[in-house]
Design a binder for these strands. Structure first.
Lengths: 325, 325
DNA sequence: TTGTAGGCGTTATCAC
DNA sequence: GTGATAACGCCTACAA
């Protein structure tokens, strides 16, 4: 049997409502009694009973994160960061890897106060008026929940400019081109727009996929072109990893021979074969924003802005440098 | 406000304790009233309040799965399968991707009835007498919780024999050799033992890692050897994927020129470039065993066997066939 | 400043 | 068979 506030009350010679107040840091209890109660509670190893609290409070302080597709490292990193971001809040997070409707049922059963989903899966979701926040590309217009997005156009502009300032004029983009995936499309288009602004000729190489090997293989095409670009923007962490490896194997030095900037701003970029200069919303920041958004959605009554485009930032490392020649 | 059993009682003209009984399928209530109550409940959209139930039952029927390192696909598949396996039980699963102690705190807060952890992380866990089941290599002896393991030695024996029966005599093992990782070690040793039994000479190639690329690269060494093996056993899903790709690129046909059998028995093996013959405990079976184990641990009083070695099975596909020559 | 009492939605133990 | 009623552990008016 666990220790309850009644046990503490007995031990501390107060009523259990006083204990309750003290434990909730109410100002209605004298500092000295509060201290005493807190001490006794800790000493007895008191752990509050969530169920009981929930029953009266009508709130669980639990957020459900729906994550049906465990795959890419970047997403995994984001999930981990979101989880971490919750630690500084009163909320806890539970994670479901189930198919959407199953997950929803679980979350309903747990009576979560809110949910986080990824935009791709959000349209199928019949949110039984549970507060919801989505992360991903915000193209749908008929939604009534906030979407946290990143400004991909801005990302590419920053990346291109960074390379431009290093003297690069021949900057290629290597990523997944032939796709319906809104995120990928936004990235290429952002690249093209940025290049146009600087009056540079675009060169894109299709990886045909998002895996490490797709980047690895794309380098062959890129090098068999008559003129080798002086800089490459890789479309994602995995792709850039493949590009980097392929270049290394061909004894092309980074950044001496070719500069490389990757999309995705995650800590793992630091520990790549060559520490990678990268662009994107830092994953910890992203996580923070998502967590803030759902909590705000839950706690604030007034409508909050529905689409929030986060500003990316450039993390400079060693993979990009002055243009050769 | 949600509908409660009292609302149902009023609507159905019975007392709420009768409703409770009917909802719990108690034999103490007449069939006809039960039907009526059930109908009314559904019609009113009744959803039981977990917190209230928990409060009196002292059981949450929730299992926590601790999964601190989101990375390899095989593990992700296992987690997904475990999650699915719980669907047929009264239990729900919550997943934590936090660092161990943080996760433990969360689980304690939720008052989970039991926990599942992976063996590597289990030693740091101070299980506050919460029932626990670990999955992984069972080398530690001083544990007091069940460990679900797979018989890796048996796996390798089956794989080698399968190839032997196809006429192969020169069978190489490609995997991570130079490591402290018990699982990897058991696999190579199993291979060596099986080869010895058949009086075949062993050939091992170290991948130096567990990633796709490590397998890809290992093929170079393997082929630069003067005599090419007629069959390869790949140490894991990722490694075998790399091996397969590398062989394809060298126009070596599978299984005509070289046979390939992979460790890890997950459905994804089916959809590889060449459908992969593989060996290991099928992941759905594994998940089932883990789920059964934790539930048994929770519900059964008597001590259950501490280490359970699961029997692997061979899934025959197209990547392995008769030996050339 | 502290204590009393009622209630949150269920289950379970009794009477009827 | 069915219906009161007392828990479960906690919060929160309201009373003292």
């Amino acid at each position: 049997m666990n220790v309850t506030i009644k046990d503490i009350a007995k031990e501390a010679n107060v009523s259990y409502s006083t204990v309750s107040k003290a434990l909730n840091n109410s100002p209605l209890v004298k500092e000295i009694t509060k201290q005493k109660i807190l001490r006794v509670a800790k000493q007895m190893g008191y752990e509050p009973n969530l169920a009981a609290k929930q029953l009266v409070r009508k709130k669980t302080e639990v957020i459900g994160l729906l994550w049906p597709t465990i795959e890419r490292l970047v997403l995994a990193t984001l999930v981990t960061n979101i989880s971490k971001a919750f630690e500084t809040t009163p909320y806890s997070m539970i994670l479901s890897v189930d198919e959407e409707n199953t997950a929803m049922d679980t979350f309903k059963k747990f009576q979560v106060d809110g949910m986080i989903v990824f935009a791709e899966s959000s349209h199928t979701i019949s949110q039984g008026n549970i507060p919801l926040v989505a992360y991903g590309v915000s193209r749908k217009t008929n939604v009534n929940y906030p979407i946290i997005d990143a400004n991909h156009e801005k990302s590419m502009e920053i990346a291109v400019t960074h390379l431009y300032d290093f003297g690069h004029r021949d900057i290629a983009y290597v990523g997944l081109l032939d796709t319906e995936d809104a995120l990928q499309i936004e990235k290429v288009e952002g690249y093209q727009k940025a290049m146009k602004k600087l009056k540079l000729k675009t060169r894109t190489f299709d990886t045909g996929g998002l895996n490490w090997f797709d980047g690895y293989r794309a380098v062959d095409n890129l090098l068999s072109d008559n003129k080798r670009p002086t800089a490459i923007i890789g479309g994602s962490y995995d792709i850039s990893g493949g590009i980097l490896r392929a270049l290394q194997e061909k004894n092309i030095e980074i950044p001496k021979d070719i500069s490389l900037v990757s999309y995705d701003n995650i800590p793992q970029m630091e520990t790549m074969e060559v520490p990678m200069t990268c662009i994107g919303v830092p994953v910890d920041e992203l996580a923070e924003e998502i967590v803030d958004a759902i909590i705000e959605r839950i706690e604030v009554d007034e409508e909050i802005e529905l689409v929030k485009k986060l500003t990316p930032s450039l993390t400079v490392r060693q993979s990009a440098g002055p243009s050769p020649k």
